[in-house]
Design a protein around this nucleic acid. Structure first.
Length: 138
DNA sequence: ATGCGGGCGGCCA
DNA sequence: GTGGCCGCCCGCA
């Protein structure tokens, strides 16, 4: 998603909204909530919840996760958030790929682990890309 | 404050 | 289909 050439900019609007509320880096609860149960959760927590809901055998993109979490435009933030997870996390971080459904480039070790985990769930690839039939559609 | 680099994502060659 | 450019947002120096 993202909002590259702003024409239908939610990005800009979003940004000003955020500013007006208050500066809360990440532990803060935020306002524009998608689901009511999620109000009060921090951005990071909301991202965790969405990632946790991806079914086994499917993948979702960073931008998709952000949007579902009610944080359009936060795709990169989703990436850095997942990158901070402890090594032994239960969260299925491996089910998150980029918009092209490719394993995001980073240290080859993690990339390999991600691909291996996905394969263990019977996710099939074409090169570095997950085949579209495994794209999660909530 | 402010500059810069990230597990990103559209748009347009 | 692919690659560059550039905008989005967050942390951190």
């Amino acid at each position: 998603m993202g909002m590259a050439k702003n024409s239908n900019n939610q990005g800009i609007k979003k940004r000003s909204d955020r500013r007006s509320y208050k500066t809360e880096g990440d532990g803060g609860a935020i306002q524009d909530a998608p689901g009511e149960e999620d109000v009060g959760l921090s951005k990071t927590e909301r991202i965790w919840q969405v990632v946790a809901s991806i079914p086994k055998g499917y993948v979702a993109s960073y931008g998709q996760i952000a949007k579902i979490a009610g944080l359009p435009g936060y795709a990169r933030f989703v990436g850095t958030t997942l990158g901070k997870l402890p090594r032994d996390t239960r969260l299925p971080w491996h089910r998150v790929v980029n918009a092209a459904l490719a394993i995001a480039p980073r240290g080859s070790g993690r990339m390999l682990e991600q691909k291996r985990r996905l394969r263990d769930e019977d996710v099939s690839f074409k090169g570095n890309r997950v085949r579209p039939e495994h794209h999660w559609q909530p």
